[in-house]
């Protein structure tokens, strides 16, 4: 199926998705202070069809002043706030060289900014999950099974309960155990009348549905959405 191939291609790695890919695209590491900050730079005419990305050294990026181009500086900053807690931030700054570049970039920015923000927020989310799970960000997006190693039993139980709303968790005696199994029908038997029948009706009220009953579709949809978000 062509659309499936295209979808697979969309999800394939190697398109500016890793730091190495970014460097191959033309980004240059301007400065790095591990484990605190990483600053990257890129120069080009991003609003044009061919982007005109420039291959520069860190010194060349700082000195670059060709009119009609824009310089982008971006960073990831990790600030420790306490034991086991950090603030992770990313800033992107664009400096346009000349009025023409500024005009061109403004048009481009109006169109691209929501998606740019979305990508950066997703970057932060992936890094956060990768760091918190301790398995690297590559594992952060991969779906994991409920009750698996990464998802604790409490979380898995929460999602199970969200997906299948049980009427009650405490089960009464089963009909077979109570000796009135024949009274489980719809009233068409000897137990529908008489004292045994009344007892069976009373007993039936106490007995919940033995199987989990799926909740309504909106509940399932949002639960699945929450499950997906939690696993990604």
């Amino acid at each position: 199926m062509p659309w499936r191939l295209r979808l697979r291609d969309f999800r394939s790695p190697g398109f500016g998705s890793t730091l190495d890919d970014l460097l191959k695209l033309g980004f240059v590491i301007l400065a790095e202070e591990s484990p605190r900050e990483l600053a990257l730079g890129l120069a080009g005419r991003f609003w044009t069809l061919y982007l005109d990305l420039q291959t520069l050294t860190p010194e060349g990026f700082l000195a670059f002043a060709k009119p009609g181009f824009a310089k982008v500086g971006a960073n990831f900053l990790v600030e420790p706030l306490g034991p086991g807690l950090c603030r992770l931030s990313t800033a992107t700054r664009i400096f346009c060289l000349g009025r023409e570049a500024r005009r061109g970039f403004r048009r481009y920015w109006l169109m691209i900014r929501p998606f740019s923000g979305l990508i950066r927020r997703e970057w932060l989310r992936l890094i956060r999950r990768g760091a918190e799970l301790g398995g690297g960000p590559g594992q952060a997006w991969r779906p994991r099974r409920c009750g698996g190693k990464r998802m604790g039993p409490e979380t898995a139980d929460f999602f199970r309960r969200a997906l299948f709303k049980r009427r009650s968790t405490s089960y009464g005696p089963r009909p077979a155990e109570s000796g009135i199994s024949w009274a489980w029908g719809r009233g068409d038997g000897p137990a529908s009348a008489g004292s045994l029948g009344i007892a069976a009706k009373k007993q039936r009220k106490k007995l919940p549905a033995p199987l989990a009953k799926p909740a309504g579709w909106p509940y399932c949809f949002f639960s699945l959405l929450a499950l997906y978000r939690a696993e990604c």
Partner: peptide, 28 residues
């Protein structure tokens, strides 16, 4: 001339966060 800024809190040490950032593969 243009800028954007995003931040989040991470319940992990700076080394783990930095390593996760270096190994980020967002394309997947």
């Amino acid at each position: 001339h243009f800028h954007e800024y995003h931040e989040t809190l991470v319940a992990a040490g700076p080394e783990a966060v930095y390593q996760a950032m270096r190994e980020l593969d967002a394309g997947r």
